[in-house]
């Protein structure tokens, strides 16, 4: 078992060493594909990040009737908190209302004139999902304690639309890129194998089974994929960090540089490289392992 494994690994590396041009072409092809895919992935990731961050800040205000007591307002607040679609809620007594505080700060001279605060108690609510806001608003407006609910519906809807568009276009672009990459990689590996089809044929003539012939080529594909992914990441990561620094310095906008999304992205690029190399090899090897029909005459 070990000697078999050793045989396949040795075959793979000897073959790579003795076909440097092919190894280079296949690696660069995979690297280029993954580099472009990586850029698109980073754009999608950052737009999503920016949209999510903005949307995460979205709250709406629930204003109670001015006539109700503090106790009644508090009970209503507890009801809001108990709602399944509400993630968090904060009770704002009318004397702590930011509008009132700001008004007092800006008009110290009228403080005595308007010492009676006309604002009602309110609650700042964050829904679990942005799409729940509308339903929550409608439900709360039916309560007698609630006078009005205020938010910025246009902005929220726009952000939701942008987020969906980016996600969907990201998926479509990703699928197109993967398909294109597969075609390019398949052709590159097929070309490298075309040059080596004689070798494969001779291996078969000396008694090698299709699996024995194919395995080193498949391993080669996987290694090209890993190398390609490594090259792509080696260029992409420093370039992205540099761009993130420049954007942060010039536009004050922080790109996503850390977190599980980035780690998953790096792992995804490596896996994509391996998968592209492997699939490209499988398709090409299977094609050339079949005995050429022109050589066989059938009864």
């Amino acid at each position: 078992m070990f000697s078999r494994l050793e045989f396949f690994i040795t075959e793979t590396f000897v073959s790579m060493r003795r076909h440097p041009a092919m190894a280079f072409a296949a690696t660069i092809c995979i690297a280029a594909s993954l580099f472009v895919a990586g850029i698109v992935g980073l754009i999608v990731l950052n737009v999503n990040y920016a949209t999510d961050t903005t949307l995460n800040r979205v709250r709406f205000n629930v204003y109670f009737q001015p006539e109700i007591s503090r106790h009644e307002a508090w009970v209503a607040y507890k009801r809001i908190l108990d709602m399944a679609r509400v993630e968090e809620a904060q009770f704002i007594p009318k004397e702590k209302s930011p509008f009132w505080l700001k008004y007092q700060q800006n008009h110290p001279d009228t403080k005595n004139l308007l010492n009676r605060n006309p604002l009602p108690d309110s609650v700042v609510v964050k829904a679990r999902d942005l799409e729940d806001i509308k339903a929550l608003k409608l439900a709360m407006l039916e309560w007698g304690e609630v006078r009005s609910v205020r938010d910025t519906p246009d902005l929220i809807q726009k952000l939701i639309n942008v987020s969906e568009a980016v996600k969907q276009s990201g998926i479509i672009i990703g699928i197109i890129l993967i398909a294109l990459s597969l075609v390019i990689i398949h052709h590159t590996i097929e070309l490298t194998l075309y040059a080596r089809r004689r070798e494969m044929f001779i291996m078969g003539l000396v008694g090698a089974t299709p699996a024995t012939i194919a395995l080193p080529f498949l391993l080669e594909g996987i290694i090209y994929g890993l190398f390609g992914a490594g090259v792509a990441l080696g260029i992409l990561v420093p370039l992205y960090r540099f761009a993130a620094q420049k954007i942060a310095a010039n536009f004050g906008f922080a790109l996503l540089t850390k977190g599980p999304e980035m780690t998953h992205g790096l792992i995804a690029v490596l896996i994509a490289g391996v998968a592209l190399g492997f699939i490209g090899s499988v398709v090409s090897v299977c094609k050339y392992l079949r005995t050429p029909k022109s050589r066989l005459t059938n009864a």
Binding site: H19, R198, G204, L205, G207, A208, P210
Partner: peptide, 22 residues
Amino acid sequence: VGVARLRRRLGVVFQDFRLLDY
């Protein structure tokens, strides 16, 4: 696989050698 097994039972000297160039 049967063809591979058959070829393992045969030694073949080819007219054009058919050596593995690499």
